[in-house]
Nucleic acid binder design. Structure first.
Lengths: 352, 352
DNA sequence: ATGAAAGCGCTAACAC
DNA sequence: GTGTTAGCGCTTTCAT
């Protein structure tokens, strides 16, 4: 956002030649400075800069050269205030390095393009960054779609008043749109499948960064309740916290095998962890799915590239992105905020 | 960028009550509208909105309620013009779905955070989008770092005057900073390795979207010249164009096996294609690396997760991102534009 | 605690 | 072809 070099807007003198006076360094070069330097009106400078027709080519070149020499750059804010720009949609994701988000992004971009909107992607990564981002995003974009964990961050964006659609979140405020993923259905499908395959000792790898583990409808609590429905052993000892990455999954698998050596199937918070865990099991000499089966959540392309291919609770991420933009469009045309639900479907592959 | 609902800035009437008059729909609600409605000065509204101390809590609440009811949202441009904001760095990548870019993004974000800058990521995907983006980006961000193919797009950004660092591009204009990847070194390492392993029929999978195939220093022409140095058969018939994805690599492998059935090693434009090609070869019953060896470019994590693991020309993408931000910082503190060179290193794994 | 005045940097409209 | 005027919507003085 910064207009660089704009230090104290009110020390400006009207004299044109104070630019070089000691102590006055750092003031932004404006269109008026250039105009004065070139001995023309600021309008003529504007014409030159914006390559308008009604200007003498000679003066235009002269002005451009002077502007260049003075390091003049139009203020994008001043410019935006008077002219119309494109609508910019801010997409906030949690982690650039998690391949789940690019597919969502791709869906958002495709849908935004149809609306004639531009997309800017921001990544949070930590609660602090999430809060910082939340407090500035309304200054950068016209509307916001994103994944947020922190309630106060959500509130800040809501209060800014920009159209806002919350993704994969369970406590959507009434004024905000939402796209939810029905993990209850997904986890039900996954566990039914595993039970059908004869598994009786099923563990879960959970994202250790989620603070809301105890809340209803999280993958964590859904796993425990659905497992209990199936009569499986289902207490916290069957849930292993893991870092949200391939590496995190591998490490958690080590811990799981230490604490629950009898485990025959693992449901992971996402595909990244599942792949890491499966890989580690294979490295340790286990047969997959013979000794231990693995199910992920997400349905990443990655799952098809590993061996064995990963069974996963597949979420249509492109659809999620499209739905988010549609919610936003509805919001901006005055509709009341609503919620779209994405229902995952189990894709069975070699890892089970 | 749009300030929504701002239709014709000059039809505004001075009367306060024309808001509801038919035909005047769509005008943006401003701070003055709220002030008038609340019977206070616009300054007091500003105090309420920005939660300043010097205001009666009662009036503040009243104003907030009215503002809310009128759907008032401060103009981010007007606001930015008078106050200071954070510096926003725009990172332009080519394809959200290619895992190469997230790692660069991660490096850029880490370095930008140290500078106190924010990062917004934009994706091009096609030449048209690249050009469109190039013509608006200077209105959105304070500085730009990115991957561009189209010269006219590059020129447009350069002309806008914002600090600009071009990534992985061979025709860097003098006014622009750059971070280059030394693929010559990378391809040399890859081919030496393959030749050492005894390969004599080596093909390349090239990105069919690159128009600059004939230019010097592209992976395409480097492959041909370095292969020739090794005395290998090296003409266009050994270069197979491919879509830039796993799927594209697989398809190209089919074509390659049809046109050059004797091939014993494949060097791919990037890891994505290499993985797709290798996978297709395996599906068709070939042994890897026995019948055919595969080398990628990029060094994605993905390469470690497939079986066999992929030998690759590894590029330190985090470093690339960091270097870009450092170039930018130098540029913004007045240094002359320079160029950083990233030298890849061959990582040998199971696929060769 | 509130208001009035000034000004941010720019472009559209209308002179000349 | 060029200059003058007005105004975008907001915050920062400085008064009251």
């Amino acid at each position: 956002m910064a207009e660089n070099g704009h230090v104290n807007p009110h020390v400006r003198s009207r004299q044109g030649d104070d630019l070089l006076v000691a102590g006055n360094r750092q003031r932004r070069t404006t269109i008026d400075d250039v105009a004065r330097s070139a001995g023309v009106s600021r309008q003529t400078v504007s014409r030159a800069i914006n390559d308008k027709a009604e200007i003498d080519p000679a003066t235009r070149d002269r002005i451009l050269r002077i502007a260049q020499a003075m390091g003049y750059r139009p203020s994008r804010f001043a410019r935006a205030m008077v002219s119309q720009g494109v609508t910019t949609l801010g997409l906030v994701i949690a982690d650039v390095l998690n391949p789940f988000f690019p597919e969502v992004t791709s869906g958002v971009m495709a849908a935004a393009e149809r609306q004639g909107w531009q997309v800017a992607v921001y990544s949070t990564g930590s609660v602090e960054r999430e809060q910082r981002l939340a407090s500035t995003i309304a200054d950068h974009v016209d509307a916001c779609v994103g994944f947020f964990l922190d309630e106060s961050a959500i509130d800040r964006i809501r209060l800014s008043g920009i159209p806002f659609v919350l993704l994969d979140h369970d406590h959507r405020p009434p004024a905000v749109g939402g796209v939810r993923i029905d993990f209850e259905s997904g986890i039900r499908q996954a566990l039914s499948h595993l039970v059908e395959r004869g598994h009786e000792r099923i563990a879960m790898l959970d994202d250790r960064a989620r603070q809301d583990a105890g809340a209803p409808r999280t993958r964590h609590s859904l796993f425990l309740s659905v497992a209990a429905e199936h009569g499986l052993p289902a207490d916290e000892s069957w849930v292993q916290p893991a870092g949200n990455s391939v590496h995190g999954g591998a490490e958690a698998m080590d811990r799981l095998l230490a604490s629950r050596p009898g485990v025959t199937a693992v449901l992971a918070y996402n595909d990244l962890m599942a792949v890491g865990a499966m890989r580690r099991a294979l490295e340790r000499g286990a047969a997959v799915p013979g000794d231990c089966a693995f199910v992920g959540c997400d349905g990443l392309m990655l799952g098809e590239l590993v061996d064995p291919q990963l069974t996963t609770v597949h979420v249509d991420k492109q659809h999620l992105g499209r739905a988010a933009v549609e919610q936003l469009a509805a919001l901006m045309s005055g509709s009341r905020p609503g919620e779209t639900v994405i229902v995952p479907r189990l894709v069975v592959r070699g890892s089970t």
